[in-house]
Amino acid sequence: MLVSMDQCAAFLAAAVLITLSPGPDNLMVISLGMSRGRAQGTAFGLGCALGCLSHTLLAALGVSALIAASPAAFGALKLCGGGYLVWLGIQALRHRGSVGAAQTQSLSGAADSVARFFAKGALVNAINPKVVIFFLSFLPQFVDAGRGQVAAQTAVLGGLFTAQACVIFGLLGYFSGAFGQWLGRHARAGVWLHRVSGVIFLGLGARLLLLP
């Protein structure tokens, strides 16, 4: 197997919690589902999730190229990625606001079709430079260089991330009305989701920085 069961389990646990934590993508999915309807919210969410495939390709090519060119460069990437994840964790732990509706005016034209919402979701994710940086920081730490086929491992992990994001974003889009109302009644839930994701980021970053 390219990726062990232990790798998959650890990766999926972190990926699901990170995907569930409040962020621009899932808040836009919820907001669009509430304002435009289930079909549009679900389509936008699936587009956002599938947009991760472009970042997976970049990560797979970049990480494999670094391994082939210089193990030291790969180590430097992991250290930089660890520092970035620690920074994300600190930012998440410092977050004190409640979860609010995302700004969607530029995304929700009255005549937009479901297909157009899907395309917009994919484009919003694909051109987001922060997602590129996140993938380059997050995926490599679950890659076992000793197993070889680094690019294939990265691609498999990216595919797993995309699959779980499709499920979560699709469900958020479909149930966005009820979910958005629940978040509105439980403002502290958003804060605790940020704290959980912050601890995860800090743990992953520390793992990259401290382990050889």
Rank of each mutant, 00 (worst) to 15 (best):
A178N: 11
G81M: 01
L77T: 09
A122H: 01
V16R: 02
P212N: 14
L123K: 10
F161G: 02
W182V: 13
G170H: 04
M1T: 09
V191Y: 06
G203N: 03
V131Q: 09
L2M: 14
G97V: 08
R195L: 01
A43Q: 11
F161T: 04
G75R: 02
G148Y: 06
L172R: 05
C80A: 15
G62R: 00
I67C: 10
F201T: 04
L183P: 01
V167C: 13
V86W: 05
I133P: 06
G198M: 04
V199T: 01
I30G: 07
L79M: 13
V63C: 00
T104I: 15
N128W: 08
G75S: 06
F44D: 08
R96Q: 13
S21L: 08
A119M: 07
A68N: 12
A178H: 09
M28D: 04
A145N: 04
S98T: 11
Q181C: 07
G190C: 02
G190E: 08
S31V: 10
V143K: 06
F135Q: 04
D144M: 02
L61Q: 09
A15M: 09
S113N: 09
A10E: 05
R195A: 00
L88K: 05
G41Y: 07
M34T: 03
W87R: 10
G47R: 05
V196G: 03
A13M: 13
G81T: 00
D25W: 09
F117C: 12
S197Y: 01
R207M: 10
W182C: 14
A126I: 03
I90K: 04
G170T: 09
G97L: 15
H194S: 12
V16P: 09
L209R: 10
T162K: 11
K120R: 15
F74D: 06
A10C: 03
W182K: 13
L77R: 08
L20T: 00
I30E: 01
P140C: 00
T162F: 10
I90P: 04
L160P: 10
V131S: 12
S70R: 08
A43V: 13
W87M: 09
C166Y: 00
A10Q: 12
F142W: 11
H186L: 04
A206Q: 03
I18E: 08
N128T: 02
A72Q: 15
W182E: 12
Q7W: 05
G82M: 00
L209M: 13
G180M: 02
S98D: 12
A43W: 06
L27G: 00
S137V: 12
